[in-house]
């Protein structure tokens, strides 16, 4: 995509403007897609011990000289219970009906949903609202009775900390594993750039669960990636 993969030390801030150190001298940076937690992003503003961040980055950000994606504090949108409100947000802000339907999601903070979830644990996927990376979740159909019982206790102790969804049937693709070719579950993450117009990046991230039967595709838990092919039925206007 022609985007440089940088570390904190590749960037510096001068007069509230962010620059990248290149072999052709400093190059101004307008947008940073960052993969570092808020606390480590700028040692002058947050954790002073951070060696990962860029000193002065937040000052440049406040001066409007650089866009951070995702913005500091945006982690609140990662709360999985926010997802359940997205259709309402669309109706409220856009006065439109959502085109893509949500996966039915149960908010365990609500009594009825909690009751339903507890009764159907063996069919559902239950996730912590603050969780990520496929950690701390229960995949009902793939769990033992003891695991389900233990998870039910966690759920009852803090219902607002969980949401539940029906187990989705992920597609499988042939995957090269130790004993040859075998089916493994995959999901696809498309990337959408929203600016003056909405563009879908050609391609995407296909994640694959490398353990047999597993639905957890997260790379932090041994998931892998696969090449993604986008088949065009119309000629690409960028191609001559």
């Amino acid at each position: 995509m022609g985007i440089d993969l940088v570390e904190g030390r590749d960037l510096y801030v001068d007069e509230n403007v962010v620059y990248m150190r290149t072999t052709q001298g400093p190059r101004r940076v307008d947008v940073i897609y960052r993969r570092i937690d808020d606390a480590f992003i700028d040692p002058l503003t947050f954790n002073p011990d951070s060696a990962l961040g860029v000193p002065g980055l937040m000052t440049a950000y406040r001066a409007g000289n650089v866009v951070l994606a995702n913005a500091v504090g945006a982690g609140v949108a990662d709360d999985k219970s926010v997802y359940t409100y997205v259709p309402d947000m669309i109706r409220f802000y856009l006065s439109e009906e959502p085109i893509l339907k949500n996966v039915p999601t149960y908010r365990c903070s609500e009594e009825d949903d909690l009751k339903y979830t507890l009764e159907h644990l063996s069919e559902l996927v239950v996730k912590e609202v603050h969780g990520s990376g496929g950690y701390g979740m229960l995949v009902g159909p793939a769990s033992t009775k003891a695991e389900i019982a233990a998870y039910a206790e966690r759920l009852k102790a803090d219902p607002a900390g969980f949401i539940a969804q029906p187990t989705l049937a992920l597609s499988t693709v042939p995957t090269y594993v130790e004993r040859g070719i075998a089916p493994r579950h995959v999901d696809l993450r498309p990337f959408v750039l929203v600016g003056d117009e909405v563009r879908i990046v050609p391609g995407g991230l296909t994640r694959v669960a490398l353990k047999e039967g597993s639905l957890i595709v997260n790379s932090s838990q041994g998931g892998g990636t696969k090449d993604t092919w986008v088949i065009n039925d119309r000629p690409d206007p960028n191609e001559k």
């Binding site: 940088v6 990248m20 150190r21 290149t22 072999t23 052709q24």
Partner: peptide, 8 residues
């Protein structure tokens, strides 16, 4: 090219 890349 990033200076760090060239350095490596």
């Amino acid at each position: 090219m990033l200076s760090r890349t060239a350095d490596h």
